[in-house]
Design a protein around this nucleic acid. Sequence first.
DNA 1: CACCCTCTTGGAAACGTTTCATCAATTTAA
DNA 2: TTAAATTGATGAAACGTTTCCAAGAGGGTG
Lengths: 336, 336
Amino acid sequence: MTATIKDVAKRANVGVGTVSRVINNHPSVSDEIRKRVLQAIEELDYKPNAIARSLKIKSTKTIGVIIPDISSAFYPEIVRGIEDAAKDLSYNIILLNTDLKREKEKEALNMLKEKKADGILFISNTVNKNLKREFKKTGIPVVLVSTKDLEGEIPSVTIDNERAAFDITNYLIKMGHRKIAIISGPKDDPNAGITRLEGYKRALLESGISVDENLIFYGNYKFKSGYDAMQKILMLKERPTAIFAASDTMAVGAASCAMQKGFNIPEDFSIVGFDGVELAEYFYPPITTVKQPRYEMGSKGMQLLIDILRGETKQKSVVLDYEIIERKSCREMGGI
Amino acid sequence: MTATIKDVAKRANVGVGTVSRVINNHPSVSDEIRKRVLQAIEELDYKPNAIARSLKIKSTKTIGVIIPDISSAFYPEIVRGIEDAAKDLSYNIILLNTDLKREKEKEALNMLKEKKADGILFISNTVNKNLKREFKKTGIPVVLVSTKDLEGEIPSVTIDNERAAFDITNYLIKMGHRKIAIISGPKDDPNAGITRLEGYKRALLESGISVDENLIFYGNYKFKSGYDAMQKILMLKERPTAIFAASDTMAVGAASCAMQKGFNIPEDFSIVGFDGVELAEYFYPPITTVKQPRYEMGSKGMQLLIDILRGETKQKSVVLDYEIIERKSCREMGGI
DNA sequence: CACCCTCTTGGAAACGTTTCATCAATTTAA
DNA sequence: TTAAATTGATGAAACGTTTCCAAGAGGGTG
């Protein structure tokens, strides 16, 4: 069997308390004994049992990470940011997928409560009252990443979606576009759906362009919904010259549809996306987009969570910067 | 504080042993007492402490998942397969990234030993003697996914890379291509680098086409290396008519390069990839590829691991089927 | 020399479970 | 009717740590 602290104590001829103290670097242990203990540890290849330790100190050095779907392009980089930060702080992460199902979110929360996670990073649905009650029931601190508590009670790390949509729409306007369609997220997504649509509308209005309801389409951030929206756009009598898709994947879907029907990007349509996903970069032509700092969102979320666990912070939320990445999917309009 | 088994016992007026038995569905407890205990559990919203339980039963219901990089397009779907299967079997997963660094692999193994993971799914570097020694030291059962132990001692779930490469190369040959370049993986990757190159060569040879060393290029599976290889290909006096890239991302890189220089896919070059990643599907034109069953690899790996933990299986490895997905990136050659 | 500190060390208790040896009560067999 | 067997329930021990309390060993001081 694998060695325990008792075995080490015996071999080093000391008490278990002493061994524990050298493991945890308590100051009050003489150099000579420390050396003896260290040697015994070495000889037995002793590794402390984290489970036993956790039981005693009531901390597992484990963080639960709740996301919709790791195989969806948006999340892996967030998770990578989380895991890197976790490693630095000597935590581990348990990954749970929810598919945005409330039921699975609840189950995940239960698991994490039973396994005594020290904290939770929640990157799933928008938070509602009901969910907040579930959070409370676990008794585990939660930080939101890339989603929000509408009432702002739970700390979160996000970007300003409204402003980002405003900026990217303005980018199109500056290039001379006046008929700009949007392929928005779903109406029931208060975080990235509604806000981006609002930013788009505000940009139009502030430039004196009236918003045309016929140029507003709704998708679900996936390829097919972008593709389908483009099909509708192509059937318009008065086509837009530019399209703002609320996700890169929809942007690519739209571009694919157009190209398949014989149109060219950016000559016939200027297209911009949102997220800054690899697909947009590697597509041909590469798609201009607003890049969310996904890695940083993850690592920052982790750091914030740990700060909170240590009681080192007033639970304030953080809003990160986004960046418009100009590529080859847009063109300047000449005069009308 | 949150309720313990003692609190439940007290409230239900029974011994702790009894509570434990109803929690674990042991048969010998009377209906009346069971009811009483259940009610107490309900009233206190008692959730068993998995840490304490783990300490006692020496099983954490946790599996370590060691991968190179979750933000690399190939892995997320594997991980999703793993997590889904884990959930079904009531396990959780701890995710660890290694960037293919031996040092990080070692650290990951140590963490999992200390945290007493019940099993490990290893999806990183090819396994060598040294690593195998580290596996042994943890004392934790390991299953390999999408990588191999050259000596075949450790159970694994993979596809037949050589045969897949053979098939896809043949696909090109059947279309009439005779000058086929390959953008291979690195020479020091015995799993997916060398094997795919060998499948390519065998296909050529069996069709009586001699392999031309000038048509063999090496990349690292990433976009840029595909792009760079294409640049070299374009500089050849005698250009190939088809290109087999050992990853979809390289295939897309190569296609982008060609298109940027004014060539058309598939008119000027037929291109096929490998992996079956989203990028290949959404690229325009969509890239023909051999799709690895990544989700299934993950879930199968998980199931195999659990079978082994339960001692229900002779530790045999499993080889999964791949699938050639025909899209729009290749064209038939007329007679020469 | 007696006293009081300080510094180390040992060991027991506690963390919240599961399980095992006991025991009490009830049923079955003789 | 009594002995034996079966069933159900109890509580202590154990899992491997950490931490706290007590105590021993010096060392200074008056």
